[in-house]
Design a protein around this nucleic acid. Structure first.
Lengths: 244, 244
DNA sequence: CGCCCAATCTAACATATGTTATGTTGGACG
DNA sequence: CGTCCAACATAACATATGTTAGATTGGGCG
C-alpha cells in the first residue's frame, strides 16, 4: 500500500521561491538530511532503506535521487555535517572556561546534549561505523579523528594521575558519550545530571598513586596473571595501539 | 562464482561418528555457531547474510537450514550461549576475591578478555541490539539483564563516593567493556593493561565529596545551567530512568 | 549388494533493496 | 496562453536476501 502520494497539492511548499530559488532547494535537502540522520542513527546504516527515508518524507524512493546521488554519499554528508555542527557547538561551550576540568565538564555536557537531542542533524552516527561499507569508512574515520582532536587537547591539559593513560581515557570517555542514546532513557535523571555523573566518574585527582585497592586489605590479589604496570614513559601521542 | 562446492570429499569430517552419532551433529553445530557469532559480532546482524555464513563454512546457503531453523533463532541462540559462557567465566574469575574493588577488577579483566577474544563464541553481541528485529529484542534484553546482574551486585558493594549514581556507573562501565573490540587494537597496550586502565579510571575513593573542580580556582563556572545535585536518597534499584 | 539416512546441493520462490530512465504535474515567467 | 523547469511519480532493472522443496551423495549396516 504505497499510500496515495500525498496529492501533489500539498501546502508544505507554498512559499514563493522567487529571489534565488535556493531557499526551497536547501530547505528540502535539510529535511532529507535530518530524516535520514534520524533513521541512520536509530536503525543503523544497513538496516535503513532508501524507501524508508522516502516514506518518512512523503515521497517515493526514486524521487529521492533527484536530491541525493547515492545512499553512501548521503550518509557521508550527514556524518560530516553532524561532526562539524557538533564541533562548533562544543567549541562554543568550551569558550567561557579556562580550567582543564571545567573545560572537560563543559565538553561532556555539550556532547551529551548533542547525542541525546531527539531531532536535529547532530546525532549519534559515530557508532554506525560497523555497518557501513568499508570503502566509505576511511573518509568517516578521518573526519572523526578531527573531531576527537578537540577532546584530545582537553584531556592533554588534565592533571590526571600518572598511572592513567590519556589515550585510553579519552577513547573511553568518548565512547560513553557517543553511545549515550543507546543506554539513556529520560526519566529519573536529566541530561544534565547524567553529564554530571559521567564527569564525576572521570574526574580524578593527581594524588592517586597507590598500587592496590584503596580500602586497605591488600592481601586480596590473584595468584597468577602477574600484571606489569608502569609503561615506559608513555609517548603520549602514539595512538597506534588503540583506536576508535 | 559460487566456487566449486569444496568437492564433497573434503577431509574435514573424516572422524568416524560411530558411538552415539551426536558427536558430529553437535560439533558441526558448534562450528556454525562460532562462525556465525564471528560474523554477527563484526559486521552486525543485518549486514551478515546467511550466504556469508554458509560460505565461511564451505557449504551452500540452503544447507544451513538443515542445522538451524531461521536466522533469528540462530542469533538468539548465539546470544544466549555467549552470555551464559561469559557469566560462567566471570563467576570463576570472581571466586578467589572478596574485597569489592578486587572483585571489580577481576570482573573487568575477565569481561575484557572475553570481548577481545578473536574467536570463540563469547563475543561482543551486546552492541548489535540496534540492528536486530524488534520482536527478538525482548528475549535478548532479558538475558542481558540477567548477565548484568553480576555487575550490579559487584557495584552494589563498592564503597563509592556518595555523589556517584551506581546505575550510571555500572551502565557506563559495561558499555566500555562490551564495546572494547570496537576501539581496542592490539599493539601498544596489552589486554591486561587496558583492563587495568579501565579499572583505574573507574576506581574512586569515598573521600571525594567536594563540589567543584579539584585544582581550586572555583571561580570558573558557567553562568547559566543551574545544575541541581544531590538526588533524594537514591532508591538504589530503580533502573527506570536509565537502561542498557 | 542394497536399503537407509544424515548431510549436503540445486533450484527456485518471494521479497527487499539501490538505482535508473522516463513520464507527469504544477507553478513561474514571458 | 504557451513554454519551461523543478520536483516529484511510475515502473522497471539487477541484485541480494531469507527460506523452502526436492534431488543427490556417501557411508553405515543388514
Amino acid at each position: 500500500m504505497p499510500r496515495p502520494p500525498a496529492s501533489r497539492t500539498s501546502p508544505a511548499r507554498s512559499e514563493p521561491r522567487s529571489a534565488s530559488e535556493n531557499t526551497t532547494q536547501a530547505a528540502r535537502r535539510q529535511e532529507i538530511l535530518e530524516v535520514a540522520a534520524q533513521l541512520f542513527a536509530t536503525r543503523g546504516y544497513k538496516a535503513t532503506s532508501i524507501r524508508q527515508i522516502a516514506e518518512e518524507l512523503g515521497m517515493m524512493a526514486g524521487s529521492l535521487y533527484y536530491h541525493i546521488r547515492s545512499k553512501e554519499t548521503l550518509f557521508v554528508e550527514i556524518h560530516n555535517r553532524a561532526l562539524d555542527a557538533a564541533a562548533s557547538r562544543i567549541f562554543s561551550a568550551l569558550a567561557p572556561h579556562t580550567s582543564p576540568w571545567a573545560r572537560l565538564e563543559a565538553a561532556c555536557r555539550e556532547l551529551l546534549d548533542i547525542q541525546l537531542s531527539p531531532s536535529s542533524l547532530t546525532l549519534p552516527l559515530m557508532n554506525t561505523i560497523r555497518s557501513v561499507p568499508p570503502e566509505v569508512r576511511n573518509a568517516l574515520i578521518k573526519k572523526r579523528d578531527e573531531f576527537e582532536a578537540i577532546f584530545r587537547n582537553i584531556v592533554e591539559d588534565l592533571p590526571l594521575p600518572p598511572t592513567i593513560d590519556r589515550d585510553v581515557y579519552r577513547i573511553i570517555l568518548l565512547r560513553v558519550l557517543n553511545t549515550a542514546n543507546d543506554w539513556y532513557h529520560p526519566g529519573r535523571l536529566s541530561r544534565e545530571e547524567i553529564a554530571r555523573q559521567i564527569f564525576d566518574i572521570f574526574r580524578h585527582t593527581q594524588s592517586e598513586t597507590d598500587a592496590t585497592s584503596p580500602p586497605g586489605k591488600s592481601s586480596d590479589d590473584a595468584p597468577g596473571a602477574s600484571r606489569s604496570r608502569g609503561r615506559p614513559a608513555s609517548p603520549r601521542k602514539s595512538r597506534a595501539a588503540v583506536m576508535n
